[in-house]
Amino acid sequence: MAINVKVVNRPTGDVSYVRSALKGMALTFKHMVDPHKVTIQYPEEKHSLSARWRGTHRMLTTEDGKAKCVACGLCPTVCPSNCIKLVPGEDENGNRYPLIFEIDEFRCIFCGYCQEVCPEEAIHLGRHYENAEYSREGFVYDLERLTAQTHPVTELWDPEDPKGQ
């Protein structure tokens, strides 16, 4: 016995290396022939996302293709990570619209406050997660890019269980 190895005196009657090894091998063999594998073949196959998944933002548009945003300034105010840049403009009819609307997805913590606070239901988080870029600048989504997103938007609550019970 090696020095300082903790020795446990176990009952010898019910301990067997051979039989437990065979048992283990039966188990691994069962798993080997089992056609059910847990791997998801990622680029081809994707995880189904929850309806409440909060991912890449998306700006919804009116029927004429313009962003719904009225540049009220609530979302940059509520944003805890200060990732929304909004410069409001006003057209000749007095309607406000965003001159610049940028979201830095790299700073964003995907809390969903912007979607919650938006009075026009314009800005949404989306059920989407594949936003890799080669530069930090690439993560700054401008209005054009936000309106161009097509993925489904996040439900802030489960429609079947609105109170979250």
Binding site: V8, N9, T12, V15, Y17, V18
Partner: peptide, 12 residues
């Protein structure tokens, strides 16, 4: 084989 010969999983 009841922990006597084969089983080296602990020292008696």
């Amino acid at each position: 084989d009841h922990g006597r010969i084969i089983s080296p999983s602990y020292g008696r």
